[in-house]
Every structure is written in C-alpha cells, then in structure tokens.
Design a protein around this nucleic acid. Structure first.
Lengths: 252, 252
DNA sequence: CCACGCTATTTGTCGGACTATTATAAAGCT
DNA sequence: AGCTTTATAATAGTCCGACAAATAGCGTGG
C-alpha cells in the first residue's frame, strides 16, 4: 500500500507529470515547476516533510532529497521549526539549466522571455567578438558544419534546431571563457523555445541563414568588431520575429 | 562507533574541518571544494555510498543528500552500478554562488579569475547602461548612499568593501532584468576577491572613487552610453590594478 | 563471432526511531 | 508593566538496516 511504484491506484489526480527516472528527481521537478510558475509563491511554507511525503506517496528520504535539490538551486530554504519555505526570487538560480527547463514547462511569462533575450543580446555579441580572436580551426570547422546542417535541415526540423544550437554553443565555447560558456545552456534554452514559438506559427518569413553566415565569416576572418555587430543583428532580428510570433499568438 | 554526534569525547576536541550547520551541507562543501580544486578530477569515480559515508562517519542518508546537492549544481552524476562520478567541467554551474565560494576556498587559478573579470567586463557595462534608463529614485538613492559609505570607510575596511558590493549590486538590480541580476553573486565574488588581493599587497595607489562617481552621475542623468563607458573604464582600471597586484605577489 | 541472459555491484527507495534546532508561549524577574 | 529567561512543541535533521531496481560486465550458448 505504501509502495510508491504502484502508480495506478485509481483515485485522484495522482502523478500527472511523467518521470525523470529517479523519484527524487521527479518530485523536485514537479515542485520546481509549481514554484517557478507561481503556484507556490515566495514566502509560502510547504507542508512538513511527513505530510508532504505521505501525500506524494513517497518515502520521507526521497522527498527530502528532492528538497535538497531545490535548496541547492536557491528555490527553497529549510529550517527546523519553521519548515521549508519558498525563497525570494532574487535567490533563484535562474540560469540553471533545470530551473530554466521548469520555467518552460509551464509557459513562461512574456516578460521573462524578454529578459532572457536581453541577456542574450548582452552576452552573445561579446562572445562572438572574443571567439573571433581566439577560435581554433577545429571550432571554426564545427561552426561551418553546424551552419551547413542547419541550412540543409531548416529550423522546421529538430535536426536543424540542434544544428542551430550547436553553432551558438560552439561560438560560446570558442570565446574560451568557462563562466561565460555556462550561460550557453540558458541562451540555448531561450533559443530553443523561441524558435519553437516561431515555428508554431507557420509562416516564418525570414531566412535566418544570411545573418548566421555573416557571423561565421567575421569569426573566420578574425574580425572581432565585425563579429560583434553581426551577432547583434542576428539576435535583434530573432527577437523581432519572436515578438511578432507572440503578438500573433492566439489566446494570450 | 558509527555515531557521528559524539563529537566531544573528552571536551571540544579538534574542530573537524568543515562545518556548515547541517551535516549534508558541510559534506557537500568539502566534496565540492575537493572537486573544483582538482583533487577529484572529471571522470573520477567517488567511493560508493557505504564506504564513503563510513569514512566520513556520517549516515548514508546524509551523504546521499550531499551528493544530491552536488548533482544539482552539475558537479557530479550518479548512476546505479557505475557509481557517482565527477562531471566534465562544462556541466559545472560555475556561476552558482556556492560553487564560486568553493572555488575561492582553495585559491582559484589566475586564469579563472581572469575569466570572471572578463565576464564582468561584458555584463556590468551593459547593466549600467540599462540601469541608466530604468533606475528608480530609490535605487539611485541607494547607490549614492553606498558610494558615500565607500568613500568614508575606504576599501581597506570590510564596511567599505560591503558598500562597494552594494553599489554594484544595486546597479545590477536597477537594470531590471532578473536573469542578469543573478550574475551579481558571481561578479560580487570576483570583486571581493580581487579587492582583497589588491589590499593584501600594499596601499592601493589609485583612488577608486572618481570612476565610481562618474558611473553614478551618468546613471543619475539617464545617459546610457555614458554609463556604459564609465563602467567599462572602472572595470578595466580595476583589472589593471589586480594584474599589478598579482604580478607583484610573492611566491608565484 | 555474436547475441543473449546471468550476476554482482551500486544507487535508489523505504520506514521508523531518535536528535537538534528554534519559534513561540509561558514563567519569572526587575 | 516591561523585559528576560525558561519551558514547550513543532519541524527539519540524522541515523539505521533492509530491500528494490537498474545496469555494466561477464559468461554461456547458439
């Protein structure tokens, strides 16, 4: 009866969200989504461990490990007697890949998307400039291959989008700055989701390739300033398209 | 024998390296430091949970929670049968406040410091520009107060350094971009650490205040471009000073 | 030589007892 | 009355020992 794996006990809404392999992971995810989506607001106190683990039909240990994950990402804070409460937003690790994924699981606010793009607009042009000065031949070749694949598959396919991400990742990594590179996951997330938005709205007019090639050429030529400007242009065009897609979006 | 709590067999005894209030936290910290300092390299497999928890004289649960924390920050990855192994550096959440703190606990490499500064050079001028356009009066007043305090206490005191950090934090927050603001902890870390270097060495020749006031004035006047340039100057001067201090550092 | 199943190892999960911490309320002191 | 101290109760934290699930690597059989 207390076994959690017997998922199918007909009853209430039980486990809607699929899985994540390990139980603590899926609990962390579902709680994380509830927090970033505003269902649990900063300052709110979660049920105590015993009640919560009972409701979720998992052991207290598994629930606690989930809480540790959330605490490590700054989403919650636990103290004896007071319980576990949602931390203020300023403490959240918004750039953590998992946190970002949780944001995108419940459609994020347009404002948040906007902020991510703003960050991208700050980081990527600078990264492109550094990449122009520091890239090695291997990275350059990888960028070229990514763009060729992207051109061939188009952004309508998952392969094309993967190639797009690979291009941007390689630029970031060519900047040769580890902390900067960790932002690639955040930026990749922004790129991925907004690209999906745009594709969702069939008539994506613009061909993204010319601007991509300009960035590539500038990096290949070692022209930092030119690379920065080209990337600025690329990002701002992408932002425009995304805005248009969102505006046209039905229902919201 | 396996009781961990009987710390004081005959008085206080020696302080086990590592405290942090909670056990899982201190284990995570000590393991985290071992990892970021290179004592455990990427790909290395940690002892299995039973052995490890026995060696550390803690319960397996506490050890597991520590591992969950490290996994949440991308430092390790666990799988049945294979064990827990250190993840490749590209997965580390280098911008996470705790990870950064672990870096600074064992003196970080000069290259890493350099990279953090580079990031700062990218982010802060952009943030200053945004702040010039978006700051409200409260934030402006807070910046002014921080600079006044900084001027009064000087960077030789902890209060003065705290005021410095507060100024930079407020600029970041005035940019009104949540993901951007989460970088403040990283930047703050870089600022703090390098400031200590400079102070450690000798009387800091340069008076940092004029550049700070220029940034403030530009933000107050709402001049984005001017704010960006002033901040660029401020950061690059700080970098220069830091380089000089490091070069002059004995034993290196 | 390859496919397939077996097994040993390791993480994952469980439940239940006990400890430590601390916010809050009660009691005591000035 | 107002402040300090102590007691209480609630909650996270820790420990233990057992069992379940996953899987890398090996051995067996085709």
């Amino acid at each position: 009866m207390s076994k959690a794996k017997e998922a199918g006990v007909g009853g209430d809404g039980e486990r809607e969200e699929g899985f994540s392999g390990r139980i603590h992971g899926s609990i962390a995810r579902s709680l994380g989504v509830a927090i970033v989506s505003g269902k649990h607001q900063p300052g709110d106190v979660l049920n105590n461990e015993i009640d919560a683990s009972e409701q979720l039909q998992v052991s207290r240990s598994a629930y606690r490990e989930a809480i540790r994950i959330l605490a490590a990402k700054g989403l919650v804070e636990s103290r004896p007697k007071t319980g576990t409460r949602v931390s203020p937003r300023t403490r959240w690790s918004l750039l953590d890949p998992e946190v970002l994924a949780w944001f995108f699981e419940s459609e994020p606010s347009e404002a948040f998307l906007q902020e991510l793009y703003e960050l991208r607009m700050i980081v990527e042009p600078a990264a492109a400039a550094l990449a122009a000065e520091r890239r090695d031949d291997t990275q350059l070749e990888r960028m070229r291959a990514a763009l060729v694949a992207m051109q061939h598959h188009t952004l309508g396919t998952e392969e094309g989008r993967a190639a797009d991400r690979d291009f941007h990742d390689t630029v970031l990594s060519a900047a040769n700055n580890a902390p900067l590179f960790t932002l690639s996951s955040s930026i990749g997330a922004a790129v991925r989701w907004t690209t999906i938005f745009k594709q969702r709205d069939r008539e994506l007019a613009r061909d993204p390739m010319p601007e991509h090639w300009k960035v590539f050429d500038a990096i290949a030529a070692g022209r930092a300033d030119q690379a920065r400007q080209a990337m600025e242009k690329l990002v701002s065009l992408a932002l425009e398209d995304t805005h248009a897609a969102i505006d046209r979006r039905p229902g919201r």
